[in-house]
């Protein structure tokens, strides 16, 4: 096709956003179907890209297919911009898509993330791209794809309820602290990706579109803005987020997810915000404990 021939018209040796135009079109179509069927995992033809599968290739392919010259990209891993994988992905896009990058959640038009959803609520003009290792929430219960597909087709999610209830009966708690399954738009059971369950409520009626990319497993799914996202729970055991006794040792935040940092060889620790942008914003606004 003509536009594919124009690939190398750009000065760089690779096409814009790394992926060729045919691949982007295929992923773009999958994204539109994913948005039209919230929480349903759309199969897509995953491509190999220069980062290894399992390291965010699904998210990278989604970002590569949506990103344009006017975008501003933020990439985080574990909530932080300066973790090595985040740096590596951010550099990749700075090179192949020639976009501006940022570490501030507020400035970004696209946020690609692994394992966290930013603390600062995302806005209408922002897109959150989540990297997903295992998109199938039922996989831990049923190994066969044929079977899980049937369960989704008829919304038969009793198995998951039973599993969670068994936890309560056996341990008094649901033994699942991250990648805690959600029900999207009252229909599909979906994985929020391995974010701590602390982050689950942020998906509920978020102002921003969230797109999930699982490269190795070849699935894309999405949660449009203002969509109901309910974490699975029971009347007598309502869903609970993680809570901390202490607040952030840097900015004093009491409402953010905290990392435990080792201070010395004696094993003394301190808690600080996992979301570095949120912590820095609070500090520059003059908050501290």
């Amino acid at each position: 096709m003509l536009d594919d021939l124009a690939l190398n018209g750009e000065a760089e040796e690779y096409s814009y956003g790394f992926l060729d135009e045919q691949t982007k079109r295929m992923i773009r179509r999958a994204i539109l179907k994913a948005v039209s069927i919230p929480g349903y995992q759309v199969p897509f033809g995953d491509r190999e890209i220069p980062l290894p599968p399992g390291w965010g290739t699904g998210g990278i392919q989604v970002t590569a297919s949506i990103i344009g010259k006017t975008d501003c990209l933020k990439v985080i891993d574990q909530g932080a911009d300066d973790t090595t994988n985040a740096v590596s992905i951010r550099r990749f896009f700075a090179r192949v898509a020639r976009v501006n990058t940022t570490e501030s959640t507020g400035e970004a038009t696209i946020v690609q993330s692994r394992h966290r959803i930013p603390e600062r609520p995302l806005q209408d003009d922002q897109i959150l791209v989540m990297q997903v290792p295992q998109p199938e929430p039922l996989r831990r219960l049923v190994t066969s794809e044929v079977e899980t597909r049937k369960l989704h087709a008829f919304a038969r999610y009793g198995l998951m309820q039973v599993r969670l209830y068994e936890d309560i009966a056996r341990y008094g708690n649901i033994v699942m602290s991250h990648d805690y399954p959600v029900r999207v738009h009252d229909r599909y059971l979906a994985s929020p990706s391995p974010v701590p369950k602390f982050d689950n409520p942020k998906l509920h009626r978020s102002r921003a579109l969230t797109i999930f990319g699982a490269g190795r497993e070849r699935r894309i799914y999405a949660i449009p803005p203002f969509t109901d996202v309910r974490s699975i729970d029971f009347d007598d055991h309502p869903f609970e987020r993680q809570k901390w006794q202490s607040c952030c040792a840097r900015c004093g935040a009491e409402d953010s997810y905290l990392d435990e940092m080792l201070l010395d060889d004696a094993g003394n620790t301190q808690f600080v915000c996992s979301d570095t942008s949120y912590c820095n914003d609070r500090l520059s606004e003059g908050a501290s404990r």
């Binding site: 003509l2 536009d3 124009a6 690939l7 750009e10 096409s15 814009y16 956003g17 135009e21 982007k24 079109r25 773009r28 994204i31 539109l32 948005v35 039209s36 297919s65 949506i66 990103i67 344009g68 010259k69 209408d124 579109l209 999405a222 449009p224 803005p225």
Partner: peptide
Amino acid sequence: PIHDAQQAFRGLLAATSR
């Protein structure tokens, strides 16, 4: 072709998600 298609897609994505 490359950048207009990207912008058109973002338009379609914005329209479909809202």
